[in-house]
Design a protein around this nucleic acid. Sequence first.
DNA 1: TCTATATAC
DNA 2: CTAACGTATATAGAA
Length: 900
Amino acid sequence: MKLLLMDGHSILNRAYYGLPDLTNSAGEHTGAIFGFLNMMFKFIEDEQPDNFAVAFDVHAPTFRHKMYDAYKGTRKPMDPELREQVPRIQEILKAMGVPVITMEGWEADDILGTLSRIGQEKGMDVTIVSGDRDLLQLATDKIKISIPKTKKTGTEIENYFAKDFEQAYGVTPKQYIDVKALMGDSSDNIPGVAGIGEKTAFKWIAQYGSIEECHAHVSEMKKAKVVDNFIEQWDTAVLSKELATINLNAPIELEEGSTKLGNLFTEEAYLLCKRYELKKLLPRFENTDTASVTDNTADSFKRVNDFSEVETFFEDIKKTGKAFIGASIMAGDDKVIRGAALSDGESTVYVECQGFISADYLCHKLMEICKAGVRLCFWDLKNVMHLITNILSDDEKKAVMEKGGKSQIFPNAVDVSVAAYLLNPTKKEYTADDVANEMLGIIIPAAADLFGKKKLKDALLDDSLLEAVTTYACYEAYVAYGAFEKVMAEIEAAGMGHIFTDIEMPLLYTLFDMEIQGIAMDKEALAQFSQKLSTRIEELEKDIYAQAGEEFNINSPKQLGVILFEKMGIEGGKKTKTGYSTAADVLEELAPANPIIGSILEYRQLAKLKSTYADGLQPCVGADGRVHSTFMQTVTATGRISSIEPNLQNIPIRMELGKEIRRVFYPKDGCVFLDADYSQIELRVLAHMSGDDNLIGAFKAGQDIHRSTASLVFNTPFDQVTDLQRRSAKAVNFGIVYGISAFGLAKDIGVGRKEAQEYIDNYLKAYPKMHTFLEGLKSSAKEKGYAVTLYGRRRPVPELNSSNFMNRQFGERVAMNSPIQGTAADIIKIAMVKVHDRLLAEGLKSKLLLQVHDELLVETYIDEQEKVESVIREEMENAAELSVKLEIDMNEGSNWLEAH
DNA sequence: TCTATATAC
DNA sequence: CTAACGTATATAGAA
């Protein structure tokens, strides 16, 4: 029989410092949990114990830490990042059926000592795992102390039976207590005897065996100061021995068999590991009898594939006047709709597309009930609308294109993922299983549980997984129904009801229409441009190889670094984690002295243009000759939207050659592009939110804001500001918005740090309310736990409570930037909805196509141009009422470059 | 899958 | 004292 015992806090502490800081998408720290569990699995595998328990101190102990005053032997309180993981690891251990033993008034050491003694008395082999050498006194010939050490080469384990200890230290484990009694241990508050250190302590105990024996033989000892001390401080030595002794008789009450090691891989534990996103641990749960995760809600799910049954089902919905239904549509990459799940909370059904139940029929039924007033709640509604549009007739599609998806498809639908995003925009994804867990407190299977390694799209192609697909869809519908109301209640409670109802949901429809429209792109022109780039890239390649004296992959920062800084011996290389940095700003400094650098920088620029834009965009052109990007509404932490496949929000504009890419986007026949962008929206938001009179005044006077800033910062008359001063002031303005540091600003504008600090100080003096405003943002975010926009949109900032300086600094910058960037995002979202809705309401055919954070692009029919211009101007400028005017710059053009 | 680099606002 | 400008996405290379 074998008993394995772990020292909970000690191993958790080891894991915390031994591993990089892991967090899950909710911002919860998990690194120590992960390390602990890995360590635990390793020991269980190696030791094959029959019995297993973990002991914790009741209260989080402090730890010695080598980086922190090691020589003083002081201890450091537990980092909050580690502290928060203590209850979590205990929760997981309990879920695994592992006894987590804590006792008020007793240390974990005493628990471990007592359990190991009992184990030995029962004839068991005992292993105690701890990072703490204090436990070595417990070693016997049956009790092994294992101390794992994390080294670069991996984890090494030191094992000590009594004889190993004696070999290493020259005293028995029990005698080690006496050693400590003499030498003391300041970090454990064991006083010891003054003047006796490690050497003397070991020598004496090795010779006499115990402090008592030493005391009895003091007369034989050579006269010395320490001997006098020892005699004088005998009481202290006795007390020290008591303090150093681990108690083997803690009154632990354990039920018979409770430490028996059973199946660790329980359903409950699995779900916790999933919740903490310990993805690398999940495979361990496979092939155990708990692999299938179920709860009994699924029992009531029903699949219907009988046409008349479906008919009745939809009739019932209409008849009973259901107001709200959760729904989910199943379709893979092929966009073929396989079925849909619907839930009213009581019953949840999956309608499978087969026989007379065509996708077309099903979609029209859904549209019908929605138009009849049943509010449908989906996950990723915008995508659902695309799936439905895909099966519509040409006439219906045309109507969607012209009149918009809201009126033509679902006039009255909501998206629960968008709602969940509002509650916490920093998460990676908003899936049904996650929201179910968070909002309803229930555990349901995720895609991976139901489909194994397959993704949903693959599962849809596999008939054997029909059951799983049905269950998945039903859960989505069930949770959409059940969670939406709760999510909304929280949104309302947080004062974000307006954002959801009046901004995000209308925006979803607006984005859908933008995606449906797409934007025309000249594929031929791109191909030609790509050719042109290739020619120049080849020239540069040859030039670079010639200068380097060999051929290598210029695209590989690693190879490039070696060539530049080792082979060519260029001075001034900076290092990254993995090698030399070859980032543009580093190389630029080296360019004047090294001709190869210029070629490399040009090569990089052209290679980027070619791969990402010239070549990358070509396959994005659809059969209609247009590019249909997807605008993501639940991605950014600040409330901005993002754009993918392709990303149309980072099309080049600054560099001369890059502008060519913008030319290939053009309006359809009979149209021009109207492009309008807000002028300095973030600084205007800053002026409004800070209430700073000087900044407000500058905007009100219609001044060039960077010049105005320069005038104040450099104490120069407005019309004598130099270009350099203006450029520097511009950088300061950006810095303020991003959460400035003197270091960053100095690097950006190429001045000393001290000088940069002066600029910042001058800035804060020039705009007196700014400083208090920014400080207020930080303290408010720290107090509330989140940053807030003018409209009440929130972003959690847990970093503000980090014990790590860098993370905390980051949190402060986030606290300053998010309200500004987020408010600007709110404003343009409002403007988008208003422009979009008004174009439709006024019967205009012109369409909003793109948003690039502060810019809107409208494909404008020439005969509507005047009207559209005024719609854009009015709606953008009046999107928000700030203490400074919102101004836009608007241009027309026959391509995107001209219009911008 | 992760890192480094590029693009945009 | 620390490190050092916010938000994104795409690509290529290295592992």
